Simulated assay, not measured.
Amino acid sequence: MAPDTHIGTTAIVTGAASGIGRSIADHFAAEGRAVLCADINRAGAEKVAATIIKDGGHARAVEVDVADEPSVQAMVDDAISWTGQIDALAANAGIMAEGSALTLSLEDWTRVMSTNATGAFLTARAALPHMIDGGGGAIVFTASTVALAGMKGIAAYSASKGAVVALTRQMAADYADQNIRVNAVAPGAVRTPLSESHFRARAEDDAEFETLLEAVIDRYPLKRWGTTAEIADLVTFLCSDRAGWMTGQIIPVDGGLLELR
């Protein structure tokens, strides 16, 4: 079947089944883009796509393991067979594991680096040729404030997001002359299933879990959690023509944590 070239601009969102990725998918759809909702949780991605379609948008769900190159290539092929183009990519999929350098297992280190760092690389690499053929595009990686400042107990996650920061700047330099813009958002504490799993792993019971959450808020000058919508707003801005002179930027969205603490 030939691609439906009448749908309009197309965005791929990885990690779209929940949290920040779900909000990014919703925001892209609200702007009129066709959205390929990609996640290792296919059922979750299908729910997000179904909601977008119900609201009058264009969406499609696909299962992807971003750490697996053939899976990533199949995702991109699906987007091209659907609309014939990729204009924006939000490489957002990520996982977390607890542990410092002395307590983290090599298995967990490898798993987190494979998903967060190698996954970001594979996703961007698969989309790039189609963006170049289409005359340009925008890539936004989801990094983290822990890539810019230290945080106890998450060595693999911090290192993987540091790799994403470096990759953002390197790719921005490599592909600027082909009209590919590459930026990253660096969220602070946003309450999502991923971030909650981090604190659940540290808490012995519900009371301690709530205490840990309150302690997070106390560290932030704005004294609240960020929202997934606030991150998605920035991602969709960076993929729009309004950000047409921005590339290679790492933008914290962190309630003032890094600059005012």
Rank of each mutant, 00 (worst) to 15 (best):
E196H: 08
A74H: 12
L106N: 11
A138P: 03
I139W: 05
T103C: 03
G57F: 08
A138Q: 00
I95E: 11
P187V: 00
A166T: 10
E107Q: 13
A143Q: 07
Y220P: 02
M246G: 01
D177R: 15
V164R: 15
N183D: 09
V140I: 06
A120S: 10
V182H: 03
G44K: 09
Q73Y: 01
I180S: 01
Q249G: 13
I251E: 04
A149F: 00
T110P: 00
N41P: 05
R33C: 09
Q73R: 15
K54D: 14
D87E: 00
D4S: 03
T142H: 04
T110H: 15
W245V: 06
G15F: 11
D241Y: 09
F121S: 02
T247E: 01
I12P: 04
P70S: 11
Q249I: 10
D65C: 06
R169T: 04
L104A: 08
A79M: 08
P193Y: 11
A184M: 14
A50Q: 13
A229C: 05
V64E: 09
G56H: 07
V64S: 02
A203Y: 11
S114Y: 06
T10C: 07
V112P: 02
L194F: 08
W225K: 01
H58D: 07
V140S: 02
P252K: 12
A232T: 01
H130W: 07
F209D: 03
D39W: 10
R200G: 01
G57E: 10
F209R: 01
P187E: 03
T228Q: 06
A29L: 11
A90K: 03
T14N: 06
K223G: 01
G19K: 15
A149L: 01
G137E: 03
N92R: 14
I52C: 09
L212K: 07
G150L: 07
G256I: 06
N183E: 12
G153C: 03
M113V: 15
G119T: 02
S23R: 14
F141P: 01
P3I: 08
W82Q: 00
I40G: 06
R181D: 02
P187N: 09
P187T: 00
M113T: 05
T103M: 13
G135I: 12
A232R: 11
A17P: 05
R242M: 12
A203I: 10
K223Y: 01
G136I: 04
P70G: 06
V35L: 11
A120P: 04
D108E: 10
E259I: 10
G244K: 15
M131Y: 02
R202T: 14
S144I: 07
I132G: 04
H198I: 13
S23V: 06
